[in-house]
Nucleic acid binder design. Structure first.
Length: 463
RNA sequence: UCCUCGGUAGCUCAACGGUAGAGCAUUCGGCUGUUAACCGAAGGGUUGUAGGUUCGAAUCCUACCCGAGGAGCCA
């Protein structure tokens, strides 16, 4: 008996119609009658289910008719055209092997569940339509990112997960230590003696691979890192997680415009890739998760992203007769309400905002001629907000040192980073893309906890 | 961390000071082409926890726990 996946059946049904085949999968629903019944199974290879028709010629008809949702079965039979309107073909079963029945307390039902409930059963939710679609798209997007950069000659660099840089300025960090918490070694002054720790100094989980990546861009020109990133912030929102994935490309001999061009090209590539490789899933999102998703994404693919400076953004917002909760004032950071207004109301598409005041941005960003702003860029998108943050880097050693002194950073800690400015420095730029935020934008899912297989957020790590 | 809303059957919700209910799910029975199948029956509850007010609390009050949305921070 030839084993066939449901995906193969849907993609080349003409090759299998009227043939005897074997299909295995999990029961999604059973509808039985006195002497016959229907089972829909999903084998994980394809978004859609395969309908099985069975009757009392099966020796185990009664057991099959009583199968619960979630049971694992192997079905032999003949693929035939279906008289029903909802599916082109169905499998007429000659044998149903019940591998693993699901007990009657199986939590997933044949009806809609709330996302909140499904988060409490994260180990079972990939068996639902929504999460099956989400996680297949997540997989495709991860591959598409590699494909995009590899096609353009970027070298993939695995930057470290454990770092000793404790002041990258991107937020609270998770400490990594093998010290016994109930018996900490102390120095003579009474401080914790990290010299006794595994690495001999304070270490944390990475909040960004950028600083480790820049030296590689000085060797390979175009590089990227893509991996897990950790922030120990006590933030409780639909778009923050303690563990998330970040993509960070870095280009040598490139400026802020090159940076934005790359981000825009990549974003459009990712959207097109999803439409091409997960049409069933995207159709589902557009119909059941976010009506209007296609319209929004098509608009993104076919139009140029808006590009404005921070100063222009402030002027635009000040002209609006809107009563913002936070004042719009040059020198203050844009609040979420301001960002949303720009991308959702004024432009109605992704917007790059560039050249922010230096005081609200990181030390490594390049100072502009005005000596007030830096060559930073944020990409704001409707619904999600900030999805990319990047900049042209300060490549001039004296400027960089001056800035680090102003911010009282410990230059010795960064000796190897500063070396890149001593030996063959050049204009270079890069950005960070929140992988989960990209998934949210492409699927219409509005909570980051629903695009991560096992999400880690404050006070929540059951799985 | 702050603000707001919420926690009632396995799930989604109703009851808003006077005997705790429905749909779905589950179990049993019926049904010869179903599509969230349909029809009939049954089981299922210390109403998040602990106090308080009251003749009487799911309902009002207090504290705590948990969840969600928004804000800050950011990707």
């Amino acid at each position: 008996m030839k084993k066939v996946t449901v995906k193969t059946l849907f993609q080349e049904s003409e090759n299998w119609i009227n043939k005897k085949i074997r299909v295995s999968g999990w029961v999604r629903t059973v509808r039985d009658s006195k002497s016959f019944g229907f089972i829909e199974i999903n084998d994980g290879t394809f978004f859609k289910n395969l309908q099985i028709v069975f009757d009392d010629s099966l020796p185990n008809f009664k057991e099959v008719a009583k199968l619960g949702v979630g049971s694992a079965i192997v079905v032999d039979g003949e693929l035939v055209e279906s008289p029903g309107a909802k599916q082109p073909f169905e499998l007429k079963a000659t044998a149903v092997d019940i591998q693993g029945p699901a007990t009657d307390d199986y939590p997933l039902q044949k009806k809609r569940h709330s996302f909140e409930f499904l988060r409490t059963i994260a180990h079972l939710r990939p068996r639902t339509n929504t999460f099956s679609a989400v996680f297949r798209v997540r997989s495709l997007l991860a591959f598409a990112i590699h494909k995009f950069f590899q096609e353009r000659g970027f070298v993939y660099v695995n930057t470290p997960i454990i770092t000793s840089c404790d002041c990258e300025g991107a937020g609270e960090m998770f400490r990594v230590s093998t010290l016994a918490l109930n018996n900490l070694p102390r120095t003579k002054e009474g401080n914790i003696d990290f010299g006794e720790d595994f690495f001999g100094k304070e270490t944390n989980l990475t909040v960004s691979g950028q600083l480790a990546l820049e030296p590689f861009s000085m060797a390979f020109k175009d590089v990227y890192t893509f991996g897990p990133t950790f922030r120990a912030e006590n933030s409780n929102t639909t778009r923050h997680a303690a563990e998330f994935w970040m993509l960070e490309p870095e280009m040598a001999f490139a400026d802020l415009n090159d940076n934005m061009n790359l981000a825009e090209e990549m974003f459009k590539y990712l959207i097109n890739y999803c439409f091409e490789h997960a049409p069933e899933e995207m159709e589902f999102f557009n119909s059941f998760i976010d009506i209007g998703l296609f319209e929004r994404l098509n608009n993104v693919v076919s139009s140029d992203f808006a590009r404005i400076t921070y100063t222009e953004a402030i002027e635009l917002l000040q002209k609006e007769k809107v009563d913002f909760e936070y004042p719009v004032e040059w020198g203050r950071d844009l609040q979420t309400e301001h960002e949303r207004f720009l991308t959702e109301k004024i432009f109605r598409k992704p917007v790059f905002v560039t050249n922010y005041p230096k005081d609200i941005k990181a030390f490594y960003m390049r100072i502009n001629e005005d000596n007030k702003t830096v060559a930073a860029m944020d990409l704001l998108v409707p619904g999600v907000g900030e999805i990319i943050g990047g900049s042209q880097r300060e490549e001039r050693l004296d400027y960089l040192i001056k800035r680090m002194d102003e911010l009282q950073l410990n230059k010795e800690e960064y000796w190897w980073y500063l070396d890149t400015r001593r030996y063959g420095t050049n204009k270079h730029a890069g950005f960070g893309l929140g992988f989960e935020r990209a998934i949210m934008y492409l699927t219409g899912i509005t909570n980051i906890r629903d695009v991560i297989p096992y999400p880690r957020t404050v006070g929540s790590i059951e799985f």
